[in-house]
Design a protein around this nucleic acid. Structure first.
Lengths: 381, 381
DNA sequence: ATGTAGTGGGAATGCGCTTTCCCAAACAGC
DNA sequence: GCTGTTTGGGAAAGCGCATTCCCACTACAT
């Protein structure tokens, strides 16, 4: 038995399919109450479930929101996904998930698949990259996105615009103040620390990583400090661990030189995200080093499940869930565009916000990432 | 400009829509190479993307897999989701995500929504519950699932069958040996510990929690120990924290009585999942207590991002990703059913595996959750 | 040369629904 | 009593595609 159809319901109720459609799915025209009841009863007794595919085909809109992440098991993306999910629910839409491992080629595939499904909007959450080996794929991704927008799709990308995407309509960017926040973090750290700094960064060309690195160096400079050395590695725990091992060697060397385990030679390590910071911590520990005795570590993102970690990471709180929500809302049909602060009832029904480099930019409620210095300097409990 | 259609492509290529369809989408009939080329070129130049909705409508199958979780930001579910995603990719399908917060009513909604979208299969990952207040909703969920199966849908549920679901076709259960593993954990803990045990459990009626509690008590009994007291609380970090506060009070009392901070009065706390264990740890710490000095803590799941936690949790490794994969594969059209061990080439093309209580049960490759006692008894590094 | 199988293409139908258009009835106004 | 206007329902035309059936044609065997 295949699921029952609207026609069957209509027949059972003794009305035309048109009428049945009108009562069962929100139409402007409301049939008479008696008829409506008959139809509803018929639908009920048949266990009628409308075929969303057919509906979508008929009114060319699917009620789908596509979400693209690197890895759904990464808590960073999981948090964003939760926000997207929530906003999707507000809009009575469902979310379609694609994980790409961060490869632009896969992202392009995902966009195409979403386009094929006629997703109403697409949220891209992974960090953009300008690495030369991705040049071509990035271009194709941009082209795919542009086409999608041209066909009426709406796109929100978290962080940075997709390199080369030039769509004028329906293309939104949720800015994340990585650089500013990293600078603030550096400032705070510098004010309570007179040793050297080291940065564990992701691969060069990864915007999120680059921004945080740049911001951190700026913050250091503003505090009158020397720029930090940079270790480049993978943007995940394994990368952090690897870098941590190297740093452990460095730290031991320095300690041997100064002949003293303590002293002003301690390093402050800034990993560009929490997961890398955790990896680095584990690596140091594996080499017999202790935090904060031998070094202190700071991260970025303030991942929820990592908050109970001890010694606590100094980190920057990013409202990831909110970011996901904002991105999703930005793509909603009647979305208000530029950041409405308390005063900002300046809603305009347009498709984008402030123009910036040809692309519409949503200025989120100034995403107030907070810098939280946890007791990374205390002894582990 | 709305996306171009197959008809347009056909016209541009100077062929009929039928032919265009045959070359662009894998049909059994392959048109001649010259024509195929013309069509492909036309499609390319128009940027043709097939309309998956229309395709789905025409061949009544959507290429969609529905995934139901409590909360995608919970690392437990995120890990499962990763597995599901992976298996979906193998099947060249996309995953549709629904989060329900664990409420059966919402789960029923989700199933209905998936059914409306004509999802090819549904994977339900949240723990089942038999709480009286959910009785009615559970029944409705079961009815919805049965209907979905009757209409040809395939369902896999992780852990326990949905109470009351009786579908005979396409209904799979991926068993998770919570009880056995909890018993093993209790045994291991008991062999290295002679103090008392306490269990922090989820709300009564939550199967996953109940199984783990029961298993743990069994393990204790097998080791000749007294049953542990049980604290019931929420199945998340907050619950763990709350219980941890209570236990902190208890521990302090006992320490006051014995007049000694150390000694055999230490408690071994078993939280039924890692996230709760982390919460409990944080609570103890907040009360000035230390692990393992004042108590030791064990969890369950071996959540990846929590592995670097120190002092390390004793925990049970559950192959969550694999579970997600298995569940998804179980719903694949040609899925082989009962657990094929190395010897087991006993594939049968049927829809289910061993019958058990009227429901088909997939016996996964004996899901070998390992019990890992981490150095929870060592001093925090 | 004739019949048969096989091949490659098009016409047409239907998937389940929405929506426009049309028509009949009921109602108002003068 | 008539026209003009609403109201409430049905008929029918798609939405974009897969697929079945049908037809023209070729290749081969007889």
């Amino acid at each position: 038995m295949a699921a029952s159809t609207l026609t069957e319901v209509a027949r059972l109720a003794g009305v035309s399919p048109a009428t049945a459609s009108r009562v069962l799915n929100g139409s402007a025209r409301k049939p008479g109450p008696d008829i409506a009841d008959r139809v509803r009863q018929a639908a009920d007794s048949l266990g009628y479930i409308p075929n969303a595919q057919a509906q979508g085909l008929a009114k060319s809109s699917s009620g789908l929101i596509g979400l693209i992440v690197h890895d759904i098991a990464d808590p960073y993306f999981a948090a964003i996904a939760r926000g997207v999910q929530e906003a999707a629910r507000e809009q009575r839409k469902m979310v379609l998930l694609a994980t790409t491992g961060g490869a632009p080629a896969e992202e392009k595939e995902a966009v195409a698949a979403f386009a094929a499904r006629r997703a109403d909007s697409i949220v891209i959450a992974g960090s953009r990259s300008s690495r030369p080996e991705n040049l071509e794929d990035n271009a194709e991704l941009a082209a795919e996105l542009d086409r999608y927008c041209r066909n009426g799709g709406r796109v929100a990308v978290v962080g940075h615009p997709v390199v080369g995407a030039t769509a004028e309509e329906g293309y939104h960017v949720v800015a994340v103040p990585n650089q500013e926040l990293a600078a603030a973090l550096a400032g705070k750290l510098a004010s309570g620390w007179d040793g050297d700094f080291v940065i564990i960064g992701g691969p060069e060309g990864l915007f999120t990583s680059d921004d945080r690195v740049r911001g951190f160096q700026e913050g250091l400079a503003a505090a009158g400090r020397q720029p930090a050395d940079i270790l480049r590695t993978a943007f995940n725990r394994a990368g952090g661990y690897e870098a941590g091992l190297k740093l452990a060697g460095l730290i031991k060397e320095r300690q041997a030189e100064s002949g003293d385990a303590a002293g002003g030679t301690r390093l402050c390590i800034f990993a560009v995200n929490d997961v890398m910071a955790i990896g680095a911590t584990a690596a140091l520990r594996s080499q017999g080093l202790r935090i904060p005795r031998d070094a202190i570590i700071a991260g970025f993102d303030d991942i929820e499940t990592l908050r109970d970690f001890r010694p606590a990471l100094s980190t920057v709180r990013l409202p990831l869930e909110e970011i996901g929500r904002l991105a999703t809302r930005a793509t909603a049909p009647g979305a208000l565009a530029a950041g409405g602060g308390p005063e900002g009832e300046s809603r305009d029904a347009g498709t984008g916000g402030t123009e910036k480099g040809g692309a519409a930019v949503v200025q989120p409620h100034p995403i107030t990432g907070e810098v939280t210095l946890r007791r990374s300097t205390e002894t582990a409990a």
